[in-house]
Design a protein around this nucleic acid. Structure first.
Lengths: 342, 342
DNA sequence: GTTAGCACTCTATTAAGGTGAGTGCTAATT
DNA sequence: AATTAGCACTCACCTTAATAGAGTGCTAAC
C-alpha cells in the first residue's frame, strides 16, 4: 500500500497548503500553485485514490480536500522537511535567561512562555515527576516551640518544605538524629519507594529507633503524599482563537475546558510511545476530547533520566515542522541549563 | 436627584430581571411579571426618565431597557437585598477541607476552585503579598559542598527557599552565625524594608560582621527580590462561556486574554477603595479592558492585617447579591482557617 | 496514461419580505 | 394632574429565494 511518488508529491502539497491556508485544497489551485507538471484532471484522479485510501477527505461533495489524521501522520513520518528556520539566534538569546532563575518553578514557567511565543500555539510544561525523583537530602529543623520544618531536596532540584506541629518535648538534637537516620536510610531512593517503605515494615524499625518518631511520621508521610501533585505550566492558551477551526464558540470552549483538566492533560503528555520526540495527531490521542488537537512532546532530562516534558498543543492542522524544530532546540537548551545548575 | 420610590421600584425590577434573563426588559413584561400595580404606559414614562438620568439604556430604539453601570451601582448600593441563600451548610462543609492543606499555596488554589464553583463565575485569589509580610525566621544551611539553602519564613505562612552556591570555605558554623545575626536584625520586619536596608547602609555593617558574608549577600538579596512575584490563582475561567454577553468570540477572547495578564489582574484587584468588600462595576474598573466586567473583591487577613484578596470576576450583569454572600462567607471561613494555622 | 470539457453539487452570500416585541406620542379617563 | 388605552412606527431577527463561485466526477478525445 505504499504510494507512488506522484501521490506522495500531491499529498505533500495538500498538507502544506492546508496547514498554511486552512482552506480545503482544490485540484486547480494545487496545479497552479505548486507547478506539479500535471493537469488538474490528473490530480483529481490521484486525489480520488488518496481519498479512498483514507489520507484525505472532503468536507462536502463540492469542496476541495483536507488531510485526514492518517494523512498528517504520513506527512509527519515521511514527507515533512524539518526546516531549521526558527530563528536560532533568537531562541538562543531568549533562552539564555533560563539561567538566571534560581527556582525551577520559575524557570519552567518561563520556558512555557517562550514555547508558546515561538510557536504561536499553546504550550504545556510538565515539571519533574516528584515521585520518580530521588531523595538528595532530608532536613528537619524546629522553627519555634510548636512547629518544625521539613525540607526534602531531590536530585531534580525539587524542594518541598512542609511545616507541621510537633510536640515540644522533641528537641532540636533529637530532630537532627532522626534526620540523620532518615537520610542514611533513604538518600538516593525514589520518593515513591520511600513512601511504600514508610507504609511498610520500615515503620516499625523507625519507631524502635526513636520513641518520639511516631509523632512525626504521619505528618512526614502526609507531606510525601502531597508532593505527588505534579506541576503543570500552561502558556498561550488564548492562541487557540487564532485558528479558524476553533472559531466555533463551542469548539474553543471545549479546548479551553480540556486545558483546565490538569489530570487529563498530564496523562495525554506522558502517554508512552515515541522516543525523544512524540507526535500525537488528532484521533491518535488517548483522550476523546483531544481528538481535534495534535500534541507534540519533547522530554527533558536530569542525571540522564527523563524527568519532565515540554509540549505544544494545537489544531491537527499544525505546522509540525516548525513546532518540532522549536521543541528540539528548546529541550536541548533546557537540558543544558539544568545540567549546569544541578 | 434622588429618585422617587416608584422609579426605584422599577429600576430594581429591571435590574433583577435583566440579571436573570440577560434580555432587555420591556414595559409590558415588567408590569405583568412583577405586579407593580401600574400600567405599561406609566412604566414607559418612568423608564424614559430613568434613561434620561443615565440609569438604564436601550440597545436600540425598539428594544427594552438594560441597566447601565450607573444603574447597577444604584442597585448595589441601595436596592439589592443580600439574600443569605447560598447554601451555608454546603459552603461550610466544603470549606472544612481548607484545614487539611499544609501548604498555603494549595489552600489558596482550593479556595479559588470553591469560589468559582459556588458562584459560577471566574474566581481569582491573590496570595499574601510577599513584600508586606514580616520575617519570622531566616535559616541558612549547607546542602552539600557547593550549595546552601536559605529558608525565609514569614508571618503569613509563606516560605521561600532558594538554593544557591557558596564558596566551600564557608562552614556550617559560620552560616549559622550569619543566620543568627540576620535574624537578630530582621525578624519582625516587612520584607520590603529588609530589602531596602540590605541595599543601604546595613550592607557595610553586615560585611564588617563577617568577612565571608559578602559572598552570600548578593544571592540573598536576589532571592528577596524574586519573592516579589505574587501568587495568583485562577479558577473557572471557562465559565465565561456560559454568559450570552460573551458569546461573541472576540469578547470571550478579550476576557480570557485579560485573565492571562497577571500584572493587570492584580492591579485591578488591589486597587484601593472600599472596605471589607469592594465592588467595581464595568467602567469603574481602572483598566479599559475590564470595562465589560464587574469585579467583587473581599480581603483576607492574618495578624489583623489585610494580606490578600478573594475575587470574583464576571459580566456586569452579575448576580451581585449572591456573589457578595458567597465571598463574605468564604472570606470569614478562610480567615478562621488561617488563624488556626498560623 | 493524460487531459479538456461539461454537467452537476453544494456552500456562502445577498436581498426581500414577514413577524413580533417594544417604543413614543396623543387623547381619553380617573 | 396623573394615569392609561390606543395606535402608528421602528428595528432586530427569521425565513425564504436567488445567485455566484469553487470544485468535483465522468466521458471522450488526445
Amino acid at each position: 500500500m505504499t504510494l507512488n511518488d506522484r501521490k506522495m508529491m500531491i499529498l505533500q502539497a495538500i498538507v502544506k497548503d492546508y496547514i498554511e491556508s486552512a482552506e480545503p485544497v482544490g485540484s486547480r489551485s494545487l496545479s497552479k500553485k505548486y507547478n506539479l507538471g500535471i493537469s488538474p484532471a490528473t490530480i483529481r484522479n490521484e486525489m480520488a485514490d488518496l481519498e479512498e485510501l483514507g489520507f484525505i477527505k472532503q468536507p462536502h461533495t463540492s469542496a476541495g480536500r483536507v488531510p485526514s489524521d492518517k494523512g498528517y501522520r504520513l506527512y509527519v513520518d515521511q514527507l515533512m522537511e524539518i526546516k531549521r528556520t526558527a530563528d536560532k539566534t533568537r531562541i538562543h538569546l531568549k533562552t539564555e535567561l533560563l539561567r538566571q532563575y534560581n527556582e525551577l518553578e520559575q524557570m519552567l514557567q518561563y520556558t512555557s512562555k517562550l514555547l508558546s511565543e515561538f510557536t504561536n500555539y499553546t504550550s504545556i510544561v510538565l515539571a519533574p515527576q516528584v515521585k520518580k525523583s530521588r531523595l538528595k537530602e532530608i532536613k528537619l529543623a524546629r522553627i519555634d516551640e510548636e512547629n518544625m520544618l521539613a525540607v526534602f531536596v531531590t536530585n531534580t532540584g525539587l524542594i518541598q518544605n512542609p511545616i507541621f506541629r510537633v510536640p515540644p518535648e522533641l528537641s532540636s538534637d533529637e530532630l537532627e538524629k532522626i534526620a540523620n537516620f532518615l537520610n542514611q536510610k533513604f538518600v538516593g531512593m525514589p520518593l515513591e519507594e520511600i513512601e511504600n517503605r514508610l507504609a511498610g515494615t520500615l515503620k516499625e524499625e523507625l519507631e524502635r529507633f526513636h520513641s518520639a518518631v511516631h509523632s512525626v511520621m504521619p505528618e512526614l508521610f502526609h507531606a510525601l503524599e502531597q508532593m505527588s501533585d505534579m506541576g503543570l505550566y500552561l502558556s498561550g492558551t488564548t492562541n487557540i482563537f487564532n485558528f479558524p477551526e476553533f472559531s466555533d464558540l463551542s469548539k474553543a470552549r471545549d479546548f479551553l475546558t480540556l486545558l483546565e483538566e490538569k489530570q487529563v492533560i498530564s496523562q495525554l503528555i506522558t502517554d508512552p510511545g515515541g522516543g525523544q520526540l512524540k507526535i500525537s495527531i488528532g484521533s491518535e490521542n488517548s483522550i476523546q476530547k483531544a481528538h481535534e488537537c495534535s500534541i507534540v512532546t519533547a522530554s527533558y532530562h536530569m542525571d540522564n533520566q527523563t524527568v519532565g516534558w515540554l509540549s505544544v498543543i494545537g489544531p491537527t492542522r499544525m505546522d509540525y515542522a516548525h513546532v518540532i524544530d522549536v521543541l528540539d532546540q528548546m529541550s536541548r537548551l533546557m537540558n543544558q541549563a539544568l545540567k549546569d545548575k544541578y
